[in-house]
């Protein structure tokens, strides 16, 4: 198997951040946010530009996260303040971010191979070599921190209001909750996580590219759906773990497909097919058992 497992594990953790972001918008808030395809390269762009201009990589990564939150803020304001449809608001922001990312970077690709990244600095701190093993340790620690924060936040009073907004918005308003505020919060946090992933992944792969966000939505959704399908989580803690697990399973699947000789150009097609299969399984199973099937959902 070579390094298929470690690489999938690292990628699963790194893209797990994207999956967590997508989970917060699509599942928790029921806000189908497509900003993600733009906020992922935004995180990479901001981190890369700051790092090559000599800013501390940790600070650059935090600024990237904040930039992502700002992108989410704009999307959610388009929706809450101007009442633009959530799907359209995300698409508009995604398109706008393409130009914004090019503006930030000044070109379409910034190499970071010779720069000192957060991985280098962390490895140095613990006297270790930067290797795939260290990348995994780094991501495990980061994911544990993020999961702990989310797990705590989604159980606070405001976190509960955020979850309820996606479940029954009318009820939340009727109980005195400001659903515009919870929507803005959720979409901002989501895009912050995605931009953080962009910043981390750009530093690990040694470059930031304006096109690296293409398909992030599908990747995130695929991870969420696979995670839910495999682990059948019940409470918030297990859902969060299942989402990261789903990202790992997804990367492992793609890794295996590549090993079996699938041309890399077909990866996006494979992803789409995988998601279709995972989504269709419950339907086919019900059909075979002659169970009741709800009419096709349009959202």
């Amino acid at each position: 198997m070579g390094n298929l497992l470690p690489v999938s594990f690292y990628e699963g953790l790194a893209y797990g951040l994207v999956a967590l972001g997508v989970y917060i918008t699509f599942r928790v808030l029921a806000f189908p946010d497509l900003t993600v395809d733009g906020s992922f390269p935004l995180g990479g762009a901001v981190a890369a530009v700051l790092i090559i201009s000599g800013v501390n990589p940790w600070l650059a990564t935090v600024v990237a996260l904040i930039a992502g939150m700002c992108a989410g803020l704009v999307t959610s304001l388009l929706n809450t303040a101007l009442r633009i449809n959530a799907l359209l608001a995300g698409i508009l922001m995604m398109v706008a971010l393409y130009s914004i990312n090019l503006m930030i970077m000044g070109r379409s690709n910034i190499p970071l191979l010779r720069e000192v990244t957060v991985f280098d600095q962390a490895a140095q701190l613990f006297g270790m070599e930067t290797s795939i093993t260290f990348s995994i340790i780094f991501m495990v620690v980061l994911i544990i921190i993020i999961l702990a924060i989310l797990n705590w936040f989604l159980r606070t009073d405001i976190g509960l209001a955020l979850r309820a907004t996606g479940d029954n918005e009318q009820m939340v308003r009727g109980l005195g909750g400001n659903t515009n505020l919870t929507t803005i919060m959720g979409v901002s946090i989501s895009n912050g996580l995605v931009a953080l992933a962009g910043a981390i992944i750009a530093q690990n792969q040694g470059f930031s590219d304006v096109g690296m966000g293409i398909g992030m939505i599908v990747l995130g959704l695929a991870s969420v759906i696979i995670g839910e399908g495999i682990f059948r989580p019940r409470n918030i803690t297990s859902i969060l773990l299942a989402v990261v697990g789903g990202a790992f399973a997804y990367r492992l699947f793609l890794g295996i497909a590549l090993r079996l000789g699938l041309p890399p150009t077909n990866l996006k097609l494979m992803t789409a097919v995988l998601v279709v299969v995972v989504l269709a399984i419950p339907y086919i199973r019900k059909k075979l058992r002659h169970e009741w099937i709800p009419p096709p959902a349009r959202m």
């Binding site: 009073d157 509960l160 309820a164 109980l175 005195g176």
Partner: peptide
Amino acid sequence: AENLSLAIMRGQSRGINTAI
């Protein structure tokens, strides 16, 4: 319990205290 926690915060600002 989560539904009731949402209801008990009526008229108060919702902060980062544990809900349940």
